[in-house]
Amino acid sequence: MMSSSSRPILEVSGLNKWFGAMHALRDVDLTVGAGERIVVCGPSGSGKSTMVRCINALERYQKGLIRLEGEAINPDCDSVLGARRAIGMVFQAFNLFPHLSILDNITLGPRKLLRLSRPDAESAAMILLSQVRMEDQARKMPSQLSGGQQQRAAIARALAMNPKLMLFDEPTSALDPEMVKEVLDVMTALAEAGTTMICVTHEMGFAKAVADRIVFMDQGKIVETADPTAFFAGDCCDRARSFVGTTTSGQA
């Protein structure tokens, strides 16, 4: 595997989280190397989103350690802001800022945190917008765009901070079927360009084509970690096999 040789970008070890009495994450361990593409799948409520949200400290956790390039990420410490800058996040609901144009959505972070001048930030943003094939929408407001366009703009916004790691939390689940492909195409292009990413998704075609490793979660635990060929061949536990069965039959 790629990660074994290079220094890992992200190390998650012994992660445990409770929502009240509900044990949402149980002893999760995950190591991600530079350039590695991880797809996380599993039934709903299995803790996929919670794990991703813990990684950039949007959720607090009770036990365990998360390290980005060796530095611990602690939600209660100011250093968390630096860690979040280095991690790009794409949400299911896009979460673009509705009061700002697409261009301003993308340049807000670089201007206020990386201290770029407006022209510099805007020319960088235009390059990112052309990568997500949105350069002609730069001056529009989020509410004028389709869901697929909004999600591509949100990807450009996350990329604008030059993240070392990209997190995708079900990026296509809120989209109409005809828009799923345009977002997946952008994500595939990013993966091919060597972006390190952890992607929570139900899109098994995407997982098969792009993932270096597939992580299967169930009831807060990582049940299975396998490369896509082995995973889809069913060389793993029963739960994963039945999950693959339902999702692929659902798509057919």
Binding site: L58, G82, R84, G88, G109, R157
Partner: peptide
């Protein structure tokens, strides 16, 4: 929506 503050946090805004 809560997602707005989360999106800002994810960029690294305090």
């Amino acid at each position: 929506p809560k997602g707005q503050a989360e999106a800002a946090a994810a960029i690294g805004f305090g």
